[in-house]
Design a protein around this nucleic acid. Structure first.
Lengths: 125, 125
DNA sequence: ACTCTGTTATAATAATTCTATAACAAAAGA
DNA sequence: TCTTTTGTTATAGAATTATTATAACAGAGT
């Protein structure tokens, strides 16, 4: 999987990494059981420090997207805690939607955008 | 408007402040033309530094939610750059929805959540 | 034996966040 | 006119976070 880091971005490197891997899982470019590169290997490929990659992997483990195996490294393994995920989603949308509402974006326009984005992810329904 | 700051939150104080004011505008608790407290006054009320409030106001100005007047202080004045807002919304939803998709939250469930949240905001449609 | 894995420890640097004082000019009110 | 209040700016210190740099360890694969 191709990972691109923007060194001029304000977003922390380990978060850019985390986000791209999550999007990789969502688009099914990464599937359950797939191994991610080792922390050292990926660090060298991207040109960043080992610990920065390790931090991204640790966050992904914490958030239930991978399991880390001593032998196989980080393996995609999504923990489906839907209730928790829904609560988090609600919290994250709270401010984002407040912003869009202020800016005159209608409910329907948000729905269209949701459909557009969700169509690129491997949702079941 | 009541503002509550969580000093144990990981979120920066100035961002908590910014977010609550945006939500105040969305819920129409704050309306076009309303003045916000002066930076010093609000800082004292909340119990934080003047510059932290000033930073929140500066960000809100930058993002087009208030205009800052030398005499009246920060005044609610939403700049309706819808195209820009839509682009930002899309960018913000990209990762948020990837996460929810991974966690097995369906498109419909997101729609329900959107409606639930939007109903609390003063959207026109 | 050798290599590769994640993990841990320590340390230095840089950037961000928050606070603390202080001062300034513009405007409002007495 | 005098005083107060406004946003704004400057400077500086403390605390936290992000990133990098070495180094070492034990477990597993070859």
């Amino acid at each position: 999987m191709l990972i691109e880091i923007d060194f001029n971005s304000e977003e922390a490197l380990y978060l850019q990494l985390r986000n791209q891997i999550i999007m990789g899982i969502a688009t099914m470019e990464l599937r359950e059981g797939d191994s991610l590169p080792s922390v050292r290997q990926l660090a060298e490929t991207i040109g960043i420090n080992m610990h920065t990659v390790n931090k991204a992997y640790t966050v992904l483990k914490q958030e239930g997207f991978v399991k880390v195996d001593r032998r196989r490294g980080a393996v995609i393994a999504v923990n489906l805690d839907k209730m928790k995920a829904l609560e988090e989603l609600k919290q994250e949308l709270l401010v984002v939607l407040a912003k869009s509402s202020c800016k005159g974006i209608s409910r329907q326009e948000v729905h269209v955008l949701i459909d557009e984005l969700y169509s690129e992810y491997g949702s079941i329904d």
